[in-house]
């Protein structure tokens, strides 16, 4: 029963990927390429690339892609459902606990310790994005001398517009995409 297999596979991916998309990648590969052979390694590389070019979480994108390839649209829906199910159960339980007990001093203490840590983790994600945008690499490149000038201009302009105009971030992202297309094709 292919639908059940898809569901259970992505249920495991959803359940064991803690900490975002890049943590999910090896899990997805294990299930989809090594264990079930639903995708070849090349196809797996393709879907990872496409995930970076389209919106949405890597795990959901992979679930949809694998599901479609293996069993059409119903397969995509079943795999996505499996992927989201653990989140739904666990996050709902935590949300319930949070809104019920957030007044307790011990919970307030835990949360006050977590807030600065969360800001730092988002900052860390921001640093990887800057490295990606300026140098095209995830980690600090050996040669810091050659950042992408167009990316730097777009980044600076975006930041200024966000600070001064209080504009919707979606507009900044779309604007940079549009300007990127023009600037990169002209220069």
């Amino acid at each position: 029963m292919i639908y059940l297999e898809l569901f259970l596979s992505f249920l495991q991916i959803g359940l064991f990927s803690i900490g975002g998309g890049y943590a999910a990648m090896p899990l997805i590969r294990e299930q989809v390429v090594d264990l079930h052979g639903w995708l070849t390694m090349t196809q797996f590389g393709d879907i990872m690339t496409i995930s970076e070019m389209t919106p949405g979480p890597i795990a959901i994108n992979s679930a949809t892609f694998v599901g479609t390839q293996v069993a059409g649209l119903p397969g995509a829906i079943v795999a996505t459902l499996g992927c989201v199910m653990p989140s739904l159960v666990i996050v709902l339980a935590l949300a319930f606990i949070y809104y019920r007990f957030k007044g307790l001093s011990i919970i307030r203490g835990i949360l006050s310790g977590l807030r600065p840590a969360v800001v730092a983790m988002i900052a860390s994600a921001g640093v990887s994005l800057i490295l990606m945008a300026f140098w095209g690499e995830q980690s600090l490149p050996a040669d810091l001398g050659a950042p992408d000038p167009i990316a730097m201009i777009l980044f600076g302009a975006g930041l200024i517009v966000l600070k001064k105009q209080k504009i919707n971030p979606i507009c900044v992202m779309a604007g940079c995409g549009f300007l990127g297309l023009i600037l990169y094709s002209v220069i």
């Binding site: 070019m53 930041l159 966000l162 995409g177 300007l179 990127g180």
Partner: peptide, 19 residues
């Protein structure tokens, strides 16, 4: 590819602003 390249810089700016 070119749209994505420009957008990546925009995404980085959006994240930096919120941080």
């Amino acid at each position: 590819g070119l749209i994505m390249k420009g957008m990546l810089a925009g995404v980085a700016a959006v994240i930096c602003d919120v941080v």
